[in-house]
């Protein structure tokens, strides 16, 4: 394989990884702006969604049904967590809320370890057939599924936030929580919606990557960290920035692992985070005073 084909191959891998980071970052940013809670348990939604779907599929349900049931259950779990843990502590400081989500993350990982053990589980690829040759690079069809799902989710969220009345009400909560209260929006309902939505997005991301990466009880931790880095790169107040940050991180990781050393993969995320915080702490796409 010549260098250009190798670079293209790495680009596809980077885009795939980046799309997953983008989705996690997007859910993180949306939840943070709506509720004020930086949910560091977001990665666990990814892991639980994947593990649950694998179990449901193993129990004999079709893959599509396993996907839908798992996404619905993790969305319900997100809503349950919001109502039982986050909502009662909503008046607490930001630090307290972060510590609560760290505790949640550890608890959910422990629960996954008890239920699924340490062995990785898998799901079949969503479509049959071998790798496709695109411009000299071999692309796994599942990669296209992942990219398609990321594009569909991002577009769906864009349509929701820009074109629907409920989406604009959610944006109103993000822009000015007090003013949103004064026009009659119940922030509790919006917060519930945010956690349920982030659970669903996380679960969907986990299910789509499982045929490529397999799923383990602890996969959510690093994914959550990478999602946070992506959000920090793009700006914690900017959904478009979160998506861009995810792709930048994914591509940088894959290129550094492929061209320099695979051991650098995780270090790159931390180097990029440090660089982003030092050079542009407000995020790449942040516009002064503008949220969402």
């Amino acid at each position: 394989m010549d260098l250009s084909s190798q670079l293209l191959q790495l680009l596809f891998s980077g885009l795939t990884l980046g799309s997953i980071y983008s989705l996690i970052a997007l859910a993180l940013v949306a939840t943070y702006n709506i509720t004020g809670v930086l949910n560091l348990a977001q990665g666990e939604f990814v892991a639980l969604g994947a593990l649950l779907a694998a179990s449901i599929y193993a129990a004999g349900l079709p893959l599509a049904a396993a996907f839908l049931v798992s996404v619905a259950l993790i969305a319900a779990l997100g809503a349950l967590i919001e109502r039982s843990v986050i909502y009662p502590a909503r008046e607490s400081s930001a630090l307290t809320l972060i510590i609560i989500t760290v505790g949640l993350s550890i608890s959910l990982r422990g629960l996954a370890l008890l239920v699924w053990g340490t062995e990785p589980v898998s799901l079949p690829a969503f479509s049959s057939g071998g790798p496709l040759l695109l411009g000299g690079a071999f692309v796994n069809p599942q990669t296209l599924w992942i990219l398609g799902m990321a594009a569909a989710t991002t577009s769906g969220l864009y349509i929701f936030f820009e074109l629907t009345y409920t989406g604009k009400a959610v944006r109103a909560c993000v822009i000015n929580r007090t003013a949103a209260l004064l026009i009659g929006i119940n922030p509790g309902t919006i917060s519930l919606l945010a956690f349920a939505g982030s659970g669903a997005i996380g679960a969907a991301a986990g299910i789509f990557i499982t045929p490529v990466t397999l799923a383990t009880y602890d996969m959510g931790f690093m994914l959550g960290v990478k999602g946070f880095v992506a959000a920090a790169i793009g700006g914690m107040h900017n959904i478009r920035g979160a998506v861009l940050g995810g792709f930048i991180l994914g591509i940088l990781e894959v290129y550094s692992a492929g061209l320099i050393s695979s051991g650098l993969k995780d270090a790159v995320a931390l180097i990029v985070l440090l660089a982003a915080l030092m050079l542009r702490p407000e995020g790449l796409l942040a516009i002064s005073g503008r949220k969402v």
Binding site: R171, A179, G184
Partner: peptide, 30 residues
């Protein structure tokens, strides 16, 4: 507050507190 709005009290706060990045129409509809 959201129940009080339903009961018929509406507060226009100091410093306006409008939704800056939403359009004028969206602000009114909300």
């Amino acid at each position: 507050p959201h129940q009080i709005v339903k009961l018929g009290i509406s507060l226009v706060p100091e410093r306006r507190e409008i939704f800056n990045s939403l359009t004028v129409i969206d602000n009114l509809l909300l």
